[in-house]
Nucleic acid binder design. Structure first.
Lengths: 215, 215, 215, 215
DNA sequence: TATGAATGAGTCTTCATTCAT
DNA sequence: TATGAATGAAGACTCATTCAT
């Protein structure tokens, strides 16, 4: 039930922002492309930034929702149960599922997200990615703390939780950018997740501990 | 023997670009900050982009040199020898050394690189990172191919080599951005490298292969 | 029985015009403040100027009425009688009364008048003050003419009548602007009126005439 | 030795501001009239306000200088001497001289001052007149205080000093606006000054005091 | 080497106003 | 009575760049 004008503006905006990036994009051009006057644009959006942000409202909401749900589930599960999961190399389906879901949303709005992730410099969404990373970091910080108690001998960088979050998000972004087909992306992410899980376990493994001792 | 004017311009430029990013930075502002007229600036640089790029000539050259050297060494070593190294979990010192060297260069020009990595949108250097990744990818592609021959059963995503390169570069960039002290960054990278090596081995390990079979 | 909408618009307009002055005030802002759409505003007023003027209809009418009445009375009184009054330094109660009445009206709409007198630049009411001055000037012109006949030796500037009118109006405006309380304003105007009456008499006095002769 | 361009801009600006007033004047129009590009204008002036103000730099400086000098002289003269002057109705030449001087400056820049006094709404010079009044007020406040000590019986409005200053400035502005020829203006001001002096003396005169008592 | 005046297209944004509904 | 979408010209101002000196 969106106004036709509104839609035309957003379509033209998408195109222009993709071509030139947020800062270099021209509202005039957008209006011209949309076959609409400046006033019309400013009827719907109070400024360039809001027009830009409006393109991502839907995706961002969907993503936030899924992430919240996922973390909510984990928080509800018993912590011992949780740890077992973490230690059990056969588990991880939960993770897969969450990532799959997120990836699905991302691929449903691929074009928009690509724009958001690579052309937002200068806008208020310039650092959205960091927001997601920070969100995820909260989650991993708890995990890391628990693991530290179980393996007090392991020395862990204070940046670990943040970096893992960074990695995870970046991994998905990487797929989104470099792989066109969702299906293929999923296959890639399977690889990636097992890669990352092995990395994760290696941190707490005895070999790792020994290596450290040798140094 | 740099002209004093030139130096003042570059200093002012560094400041301005850091504050506003490439696109939003203003040459006028830079001139004003440098206490110099537009004409002076245009005597040294043919346009905004060249001024921006000039700031990174030194670092980029240094980095390219180190990377070339490192890969040259690897290429010269016998391939069988190389594979042994790769399979031998105790090895990896070579890797550490290269990374350490690169990190040292990066931290020697930390401010500049931060600028280049986070504020270059709109300039011709917008995608330098990709150049380094591509460079590294050539190297890893060969490795992956060799590993594939050794473990033909393992299904590997065609993006693996590129992703690993991406990871490695991104890891260093991550450290540069989030960790102020080179020393601390090195400690963090130790963690990261072992994390990544374990990920790498896990791809070719039997467990991994079994997991795949089960699916 | 004013429409509620109309009232809200006018209240919002008052506020906006006070803040920014006629020219810089924004109809959009007014509508927003009033919680009303542009259409509504344009139903009641044909343009910005009319909206502005509408705020002062009441005051202006009241003021005109009082001034007309006052001058009507004077015109009806015999001219000899009038002159006696003018020459008699003890008189002047009539003047006081008129001024008091006018001041009362002005203070009853102080906010509006302040707006009209200080923020109307650009509107059609930009020069209302002059209208009142011109009105008053007609009155004083007659007086001056009569005095000239009585004191033909006195050289009088042709601007005298206009200036005195100007003075009188400006005096009231001055009070309105600088004195918040009507009561205090009245006290001040007492001072002012006697000041002005003495000035007036001095023009026709013998001393003045002598001074002129000396030159 | 002013740049020709600069001069053309200022001439065009003068014209445009006179026609439309500060707020409604258009920089585009000014540039068009001056046959110059926007950039040229912005090379000389940082914004509309500065362009406007630049037109008055000369006059304002001259006026401030004269006023300062005048007050400086008075301040240096002995206070008893000063009071004698104030009480001596035959004196006042000093005042005449100062006013004459000021008027001369004003008429030398009549066009500009008219602009400044009637079309500055919205600019930073909107209230210059008040600055001059305030300046003069400081001067008269001292006088009023001294007179109060001499005539403690006289009740004086606390606004007296400010109002007299207002009057004096407004009188000159009045002449400037309504009288085209400096010579004629001077004649008018003679009238006005004696008018105002008589008003001033009347405040402290015995008659005035009696009048008050009668009430 | 550098100055600084000048270009002119371009920036985002705001405006009073209109009109079909 | 009002809505709200839309107009389109205009607003002040900034930009990278050029060039005679």
């Amino acid at each position: 039930m969106k106004s036709e004008t509104l839609q035309k503006i957003q379509e033209a905006a998408l195109e222009e922002f993709q071509e030139k990036g947020y800062t270099k994009a021209s509202l005039r051009q957008i209006c011209k492309k949309a076959g609409v006057t400046t006033g019309a644009l400013y009827f719907f959006f109070k400024d360039k930034d809001q027009l830009f942000s409006s393109l991502f409202a839907e995706v961002l909401e969907a993503l936030n929702k899924v992430m919240d749900q996922h973390y909510e589930i984990e928080r509800q599960s018993e912590s011992t149960e949780l740890l077992q999961m973490l230690l059990n190399k056969d588990s991880g389906q939960e993770d897969y599922k969450a990532i799959e879901e997120i990836m699905h949303i991302m691929y449903s709005h691929r074009q928009m997200l690509l724009l958001l992730l690579t052309k937002a410099q200068g806008s208020s969404l310039e650092h959205v990615e960091d927001q997601f990373i920070d969100h995820t970091t909260k989650h991993y910080s708890e995990l890391v703390d628990k693991m530290k108690k179980l393996f007090p001998q392991v020395e862990v960088s204070p940046h670990l939780a943040h970096w893992i979050s960074h990695q995870q998000i970046e991994g998905m972004v990487y797929a989104l950018i470099h792989i066109e087909e969702e299906k293929e992306a999923k296959a890639f992410l399977d690889n990636m997740v097992s890669y990352m899980r092995n990395g994760w376990f290696s941190i707490w493994s005895e070999e790792q501990m020994k290596e450290k001792e040798d140094k």
